[in-house]
Design a protein around this nucleic acid. Structure first.
Lengths: 409, 409
DNA sequence: ACAGTTTGAAAGAAAGGAACACAAATTACG
DNA sequence: CGTAATTTGTGTTCCTTTCTTTCAAACTGT
């Protein structure tokens, strides 16, 4: 349902076709016209007209064809012009802030990340720091008209409609209208979208990482907290307000520890960073350095470290089994901390999943580490910021303003 | 993504618009042309042409307008012709078999249900019984050409593509190609779709029951087992092979009882029928009669029955909290046994959910009993069987065969 | 009875893609 | 080295579908 109930007009077709071409180029990179013909199923003439319109708007350009050794006239390469449309991606991570300027097609023009003290910080302070970082990434005198949107990833429960940060435990924020605050700190009217870090990590892995071409994905981002980004039939699961995907707070252990969310025995309390460090006998607030120490110990054969990883692996497998039963995903992607420990726990996880998941969905799922590393949420923020442009390029460049008018004169 | 990557042709628009009209009429009942104009956003002329085509194919008919007391020319009512397109819906429930003949628009022409012995039964036996039941519901001499498809609901893990029954615990089936078996028992070439009972219950509640107009729904069907049907952004969550939604097998209790699925401590072992009966001190295989006895005891104030319901309510709330965090649904619908006990456990469930779910999604969700009763899966099977017709009516009635050609002569 | 309102009907216009014919650019092959 | 085969871009014509506009029809309210 949803779109099915609305009527379509003939103009819709052109918009959809322009969007199909732009999305193809954005997700799968530069390609020849004839490739576009076969991928979209449109005719050569249709592609010609559409590309002409996109080229007139400056969004794409055609280059000399790459000779590929087959008979027939070579087809010119079509590529998006990353200079023409860019987004600013921002991230508030637990230990760092990051910013990147990304051109359409996914090219990272500039990227910067600075360390951040853990713990509570005021909204104003963070917004100012982010603005400072943004200015470093966006060159002075940069043509503001090519900046399409701003995307922000953060560890928080975020409402999709307006970017309200309902809860950011590690920052101590509650019900903060971050989008608006950031707009004033950056002194800009460009649209700002805010979203959960794990949701954006999932989006990035789906577009550019381990989950390309996979339409049913459970992405798990394990850091201090455990977040999830879930892709169902190729679409991000947001829920009714955008709060969806909080898999870290599945109740799993009735005799478990209290969780900062107010509940207890959440998955997060068994597989999060603190859980690993606690079990390994390291300071629970030690952060990434202590995690590295645990992994080093495990490699060296220290029993307590190995047992700690075993325990985490078992709980990880238990939770995964539930998610696999619920979502029947094709792929589970482990990001962040969970991606890093994956080599150590893969066997334990697989055994536990074997034991506890239903055979039918179990057989079809693969469990892999994430491939984009720490920048996944940042890249996801860029992807999200591009989304309106990808969904309707015509709306962005003023649709019927610059028709090619090829052979009228 | 998905459809976004394919190009659209102008013909697509007409198909989509025909589908929009048929779906409107199917889900929201007969309505005037002018209502269709405003609901679809199409113009009067477009609607006229499309309705004309549907009428020429016999799928819709126009009746005299209902005078509604407002100024202006009254608009004729458009209604689907349930005689023109019907589906046969079948259900294999735990205690019964059922069949219904349903016309497009949702009218139930005939319905029948027979008791069934619990326990393992051979595929041939069940298929023969279903065929017998189907013949009772489909009148002799019924015009076979108007039968669009056959839908079957059953308690099983079912693959969507081909209706392979991967696992049906209460019947003892494994990897049964039920669709094919049924086709030969019914001696028909009509397409047969098989799906999980809970998925179809969710579909029915979404179309005709408690979840109408709600696009993010978690439906929970509690019987002997606990199944789930989940609707995300208006679409059923199927997963990569259609096994999705098996929420009954979320691991919740690490010290729980073994589950027939091979795991232990599954949600089902705490909130299923047997769990309730066990806690209340009734024979666990007593079925619906014993459940009624427990509820009667609870009403009479028998402590053990009340405590049993309390316990089930608490576990129900615990699992629900996890699902609410994961899906951020607008509505949770409790079906089957869980719907029946809802009046007794609502307060306990709400309290437990309050305690264990994140506040942001918790605030937005409502928990309600199902409204369609025992026939929900059967009606859902009908809806699923209609789906291809609703998605592309033109393909069904031969598209360009019977163009109205209104004013050509 | 008459004005006002809403709707259906019909014809023309606009827009977009498909089909087709032809030209161009490359490889394959003798 | 030249010709055939192949693939692709170009340009024209045609078809499809919806929208716009205009007018007539049917109803309400005064």
């Amino acid at each position: 349902m949803r779109g099915d109930e609305l009527g379509q007009r003939s103009e819709t077709v052109r918009r959809a076709n322009l969007a199909a071409i732009v999305r193809q180029l954005h997700t799968r990179g530069p390609q020849s016209r004839s490739t576009l013909v076969s991928r979209t199923g449109l005719t050569r003439s249709a592609i010609r007209g559409l590309i002409g319109e996109l080229a007139a708007a400056g969004l794409v350009s055609e280059r000399a064809p790459a000779p590929l050794g087959t008979p027939g006239r070579p087809s010119p390469m079509v590529r998006l012009n990353p200079e023409r449309a860019k987004v600013l991606a921002l991230e508030i991570a637990v230990d760092s802030l990051a910013a990147a300027l990304v051109g359409i097609g996914g090219r990272v023009v500039a990227i910067d990340r600075v360390e951040r003290q853990r713990g509570h910080t005021s909204v104003e302070e963070v917004a100012a720091d982010l603005a400072e970082l943004a200015r470093r990434v966006v060159p002075v005198g940069h043509d503001a008209s090519t900046l399409v949107a701003i995307g922000l990833a953060m560890v928080a429960v975020v409402r999709r409609d307006d970017g309200l940060v309902a809860m950011a435990p590690n920052l101590g924020w509650k019900d903060v209208p971050l989008g608006a605050r950031l707009a004033s700190a950056l002194r800009t009217g460009i649209p700002i979208v805010v979203a959960n870090e794990a949701d954006l990590g999932a989006l990035a892995e789906h577009r550019r990482g381990a989950a390309v071409d996979v339409d049913d994905v459970v992405y798990i981002s394990g850091e201090v907290g455990v977040g999830g980004g879930i892709i169902v039939a190729g679409q991000a699961l947001t829920g009714v307000a955008g709060y969806g995907g909080e898999i870290g707070h599945m109740p799993l252990n009735p005799t478990g520890l209290p969780c900062h969310c107010g509940s207890f025995g959440c998955w997060e309390t068994e597989v999060g960073e603190r859980a690993l460090l606690r079990r390994a006998g390291h300071p629970v607030d030690g952060g990434g350095a202590e995690v590295d120490a645990v992994l080093a110990e495990a490699s060296a054969g220290v029993p307590r470290a190995r047992e700690a990883l075993e325990d985490v692996g078992r709980w990880l497998g238990t939770g995964l089994a539930g998610l696999i039963n619920i979502f029947n995903p094709e792929l589970v992607v482990l990001g962040g901390l969970l991606g890093r420990i994956q080599p150590y726990v893969a066997a334990t996880v697989a055994a536990e999943v074997d034991r506890r998941a239903l055979p039918a969905p179990r057989k079809l799922v693969r469990i892999v580490p994430a491939s984009l590393g720490v920048d996944a949420p940042l890249l996801g923020a860029a992807e999200l910021a591009f989304e309106p442009l990808l969904a309707d390029p015509a709306a962005w460049f003023g649709a019927r303003g610059v028709v090619p008018e090829l052979a009228s004169a």
